[in-house]
């Protein structure tokens, strides 16, 4: 997949997009665009999501039952699909974060010998 060339930053590490989405949703229900914006903002534009790839990931998360989706009216003629984390999703997030942290810590220990 090609990334958005015009802005600086790095691709999201493979496999972590799902965790980023779950983490973003843990603060409250959001629609897809808001999720993308939030990831971009909080990483101070360092993490660059190819925005569209959010949606297949969201479908996978929906399938697993970690989030639910519902349509919400936003403005006179517009609806947005808002995703909400389920308890199962919260559990999954905790697992992924701890696994990710373990890996990152181990990686750091290797590349920055004390």
């Amino acid at each position: 997949m090609q990334r958005f060339q015009n802005s600086p930053g790095a691709d999201v590490l493979p496999g972590t997009l799902q965790m980023l989405i779950l983490q973003t949703l843990s603060r409250g229900p959001l629609h897809g665009y808001a999720i993308a914006q939030h990831i971009k903002r909080t990483s101070e534009d360092q993490l660059q999501v190819e925005e569209g790839s959010l949606y297949p990931a969201l479908q996978r998360i929906l399938l697993k039952g970690w989030v639910t989706a519902e349509w919400v009216q936003v403005g006179p003629k517009r609806r947005a699909r808002v995703y909400r984390l389920t308890p199962a999703g919260r559990k999954q997030l905790a697992e992924e974060v701890s696994a990710f942290t373990r890996v990152m810590q181990a990686t750091f220990r290797v590349i920055q010998p004390a």
Binding site: E50, E51, G52, Y55, P56, Q59, L63
Partner: peptide, 21 residues
């Protein structure tokens, strides 16, 4: 146009989303 470029290949993404199921 810029929005579409940022978004990526919508057709492909739709198919991928579909494939998830």
């Amino acid at each position: 146009y810029a929005a579409r470029r940022q978004f990526g290949n919508a057709m492909l993404l739709k198919e991928t989303s579909d494939g998830v199921w």
